[in-house]
């Protein structure tokens, strides 16, 4: 079985035995290890990717389900070498990163939120990140990072 989809704007294909999960396909044959496995059970959000703009736990999503769809991972955000996307820039500037293991998923979940709601209230940000666990930061600077990302995206548009 072969699955074809768009990964960060490029057509890719990968052969599957069957129910391989998107996370394992990304990290394995496709070599995209920026997406992390924190729990493998959809509880921690470290593996968050966007599929057609929506946030998904790649650890639970069979790769066969993304046939023909557009998958965005953390590797697909930076607009050019040496540059960062507004979300990445915001996390770097506002101190939303400590050990960094939750960061790719946290940034992808934040981006999915901001794509749907460019100016979320604090409570909306917290609600949107409820599936992304962080053990280092206590979330304060993560929430501020998302607010900053909203502002940077606003400036950019």
């Amino acid at each position: 079985m072969e699955v074809r989809f768009t990964l960060n704007g490029r057509e890719v294909s990968c052969s599957l035995v069957g129910s391989e999960l998107l996370l394992d396909v990304l990290r394995g044959p496709l070599g995209h290890r920026g997406t992390k496995e924190g729990c493998g059970k959809g509880e921690c959000g470290a593996c968050t990717v966007q599929v057609d703009g929506h946030p998904f736990n790649a650890c639970l999503l069979p790769a066969a389900e993304v046939e023909g769809r557009a998958v965005t991972t953390i590797e697909g955000l930076a607009p050019a070498p040496g540059e960062l996307s507004p979300e990445q820039q915001a996390f770097v500037e506002a101190g939303g990163i400590q050990c960094g293991f939750c960061t790719p998923g946290m940034i992808m979940a934040s981006k999915a939120l901001l794509d749907a709601d460019p100016d979320p209230a604090d409570a909306d940000i917290r609600h949107a990140l409820v599936g992304n666990l962080c053990r280092c930061t206590g979330y304060a600077q993560i929430i501020e990072s998302v607010r900053r990302a909203a502002a940077l995206r606003g400036e950019g548009s």
């Binding site: 995209h32 920026g34 960062l84 820039q89 770097v92």
Partner: peptide, 21 residues
């Protein structure tokens, strides 16, 4: 002061290599 921490950009872009990677 709070200059950008040296590991931040690698972590924000998914390029930091953890043991699982």
């Amino acid at each position: 002061t709070s200059p950008t921490r040296p590991d931040a950009a690698a972590k924000a872009t998914g390029r930091a290599e953890y043991i699982s990677d």
